[in-house]
Structure formats: structure tokens, C-alpha cells
């Protein structure tokens, strides 16, 4: 994974609550065997009209939302399935950070493992972000702050290990493999007891 230290971008807003992984990427696109190229079908059934053209009613199709790397979403974003295709699709679509007042566990975990910042902010700050679409934000992973124009910076929590992995680009599989001796010991202890 490439290190992720700072993201600076205007925001785009999807205010709906409970945006589930089926809306982020409908199941029929999960027959892929790679992780590339899913941006094209990100939010597929929300984003396109039945003739395949962009649906102007979808907020991210608005001209001012194009190119935004920070998505502000309604409460409980990413609920539903464990499909890692959801963060893969968002990243390929150009989203590098998702901010919400609540983010579903498995989604957040999957997102952070892929370098997609899934950040939970307080209710008041969330309200402010929803009310200010298109503002320019700067997210600093090391300092765990989001700077915004005309208001105090927002502090956010980040699980220390996830933060470390983002900043250093740590491969978590490598971290686990590093503990192979401990794993072997555990296995022999358990198997002896059995």
C-alpha cells in the first residue's frame, strides 16, 4: 500500500443515511476476479439512467462534484455486506476519503486497509459538512485533523495501528507473517491440549 498522509480536495455530498454496499456497488458486478476497474460501476444504479447516460439527479454527477476526492455522506455509510469491492470501487472512482458521523465496521476496516480514509466526525461537524458542499478541506492523517475554511479544525479518531499503516504504507500481511513464530507456538500449544 502507498502511504496516505494528506488529502486536500473540495467535498461532494451524498446526504442519504444508511448508504449500503449494494448501492455503492450492486451485487451483479461482483463476478469480477480482479480489483481493478470498478469505478465505472460505482453507485451504478443510482448514477446512470436506464439508457446508460448520466442521471443528473445523482449528486456526484453535478459539474461541481467532479474531481472531488472527499465524499461527505449521511449517517451509517457502508452498512450491509463485507464486499471489499465497495472501497475498491470508490477508490477507482476517484474518492480518497469518506466522512460521516457513523461508518459501518466492516466497511471502515476494508477501506482503511486499502488506503481509503474512512473518517468518523462528531454530529455537529457532520452537520456543518453536509451544509457546506464543495468546501475545500485538508485532511492530515498524522495530526488527525481536518482543516476547513472559516471554522475550527475538526479532530478525528483513528485507530493507532490503522494510522501507522496509512502513514508508513505498511503491509498488514507482512506484519502478521512477522509473527509466524508466535502463531506456530500457539498452534502447538492448542494441539497438544486437544
Amino acid at each position: 500500500m502507498k502511504p496516505v498522509t494528506r488529502i486536500q480536495s473540495r467535498t461532494a455530498v451524498l446526504a442519504d443515511e444508511n448508504i449500503d454496499t449494494d448501492r455503492i456497488i450492486p451485487a451483479r458486478f461482483l463476478t469480477t476476479t480482479t480489483r481493478e476497474g470498478l469505478g465505472r460501476v460505482c453507485f451504478n444504479d443510482w448514477r446512470y439512467r436506464s439508457d446508460g447516460s448520466d442521471d443528473p439527479a445523482f449528486p456526484l454527477n453535478a459539474p461541481e462534484a467532479r474531481g472531488c476526492e472527499i465524499l461527505v455522506a449521511g449517517r451509517n455509510f457502508g452498512c450491509g455486506s463485507s464486499r471489499e469491492h465497495a472501497p475498491w470501487a470508490l477508490l477507482d472512482y476517484g474518492v480518497r476519503a469518506v466522512l460521516s458521523s457513523e461508518i459501518a465496521d466492516i466497511f471502515r476496516n476494508n477501506a482503511l486497509k486499502n488506503g481509503l480514509l474512512a473518517i468518523v466526525v462528531g454530529a455537529a461537524e457532520h452537520r456543518w459538512l453536509l451544509d457546506h458542499p464543495g468546501v475545500e478541506l485538508a485532511i492530515d492523517v498524522c495530526g488527525q485533523t481536518i482543516t476547513r475554511p472559516g471554522a475550527d479544525p475538526i479532530h478525528f479518531e483513528l485507530e493507532p495501528f490503522a494510522r501507522h499503516c496509512l502513514l508508513e504504507g505498511v503491509d498488514q500481511l507482512g506484519f502478521l507473517l512477522h509473527h509466524t513464530d508466535a502463531i506456530r507456538e500457539f498452534e502447538s500449544r492448542v494441539e497438544e491440549a486437544a
Partner: peptide, 18 residues
């Protein structure tokens, strides 16, 4: 519990999860 594909790889390779 359910896990993502990256973690499926972790468990295949190490039988462990963070």
C-alpha cells in the same frame, strides 16, 4: 464474523486476523 477480501488473504496465509 464477516471479513473483507484482504483479510481473507491474511487468514489463508497466517490463519490469523488482526
Amino acid at each position: 464474523f464477516g471479513i473483507g477480501t484482504t483479510e481473507v488473504g491474511h487468514v489463508l496465509a497466517t490463519q490469523c486476523l488482526l
